[in-house]
Design a protein around this nucleic acid. Structure first.
Lengths: 181, 181
DNA sequence: GTCTATAGTTCGATAGAC
DNA sequence: GTCTATCGAACTATAGAC
């Protein structure tokens, strides 16, 4: 049985938005690849922006869940390590990683998307949960960078002979070191 | 005496491309802000893409110079530290940093710009110069991330109460730690 | 060097038939 | 749910006058 059209639109849009950029991808292209006309897309999504919103939703829920968890925990070194582990686990899910990459690459174009603005706030709050009030500038940068290191490994994969697993493991290792005093 | 028009076009384009994105910025907007018509822009630059090329040139020269220097040096820990210092110094120049930010935010839209493709190769070669042949995955990621850490501090500045100097100093500190075994 | 004017194209979005 | 047909608006780029 075939996937429903709505999901297929999301898949194609996600790929094209990531490869070419949001603005550079027209609804005509998406429709053509799906084998329908633009008008059909408008049956499933109110606007082009609505497609993006539906993609953000795929990721936002998990990040917010992670923030809720972090806030329920004491700010200990072990909590920070566990936070990185959980974040790395999320990044392992294929669909999630694809959305993350799409969002990374289209920050400017989507800077006014309300759902994305909210998610950015959530991410910022997440880094805040990794720092005590008295943390130094180097500590703040270092710990924020730790979260980022988990993403960074992924784009190195493209040009490298290393396996996906090696990259994931090594990224987590580097991230963990950034937490150490 | 007024700045020449060509330079003013570059300045306005750089700002708008960074704020709104390359695709989202039309030549009409640039022309309006400059107080001329689109046609005037076409006198100074052959295409919209040509404006980008001229902006990339502002940065590419320094990165290539840095690569040449790195290749002339033995791959020692001290050479890597010195490389970070030089890279951080480059980032301090205002115009250079602005171009870096513009390029970061428009990677997808500009992925086929030949000058940018070349500069990406140069950056990749630069990270390669930071690793011995036998380096582990974690070392490779860590050292590549060190270069990136210098950029990362900059976007944290926006939301922080920290001064620019503190950020720069702290970023270099974090980057240096990423070089350590 | 800068202008007006416009060609040529594409876009997001809608109306209405089936 | 998908189609045809079309709209108004925006875009890049060019031609030619001044």
């Amino acid at each position: 049985m075939r996937e429903d059209t709505r999901t297929r639109i999301q898949e194609i849009a996600l790929r094209l938005f990531t490869e070419q950029g949001y603005e550079a991808t027209s609804l005509r292209e998406i429709a053509e690849e799906l084998g329908v006309t633009k008008a059909a897309l408008y049956y499933h999504f109110k606007t082009k922006d609505d497609i993006v919103a539906s993609l953000v939703d795929l990721r936002a829920a998990e990040v917010e869940e992670l923030l809720d968890w972090a806030r329920s925990q004491p700010k200990t070194p072990e909590m920070r390590r566990e936070l990185l582990r959980r974040y790395a686990d999320n990044l392992m899910r294929p669909r999630y990683l694809e959305v993350a990459r799409f969002l990374e690459r289209n920050q400017t174009a989507l800077r006014e998307q309300p759902k994305l603005v909210k998610m950015r706030d959530t991410m910022l709050a997440l880094t805040a949960e990794m720092n005590e009030p008295g943390a130094t500038a180097a500590e703040r940068i270092s710990r924020s960078l730790a979260l980022f290191a988990l993403h960074a490994g992924k784009w190195l994969t493209q040009e490298s002979e290393l396996s996906d697993e090696e990259i994931t493991k090594a990224s987590l290792e580097v991230a963990m070191r950034l937490l150490e005093p």
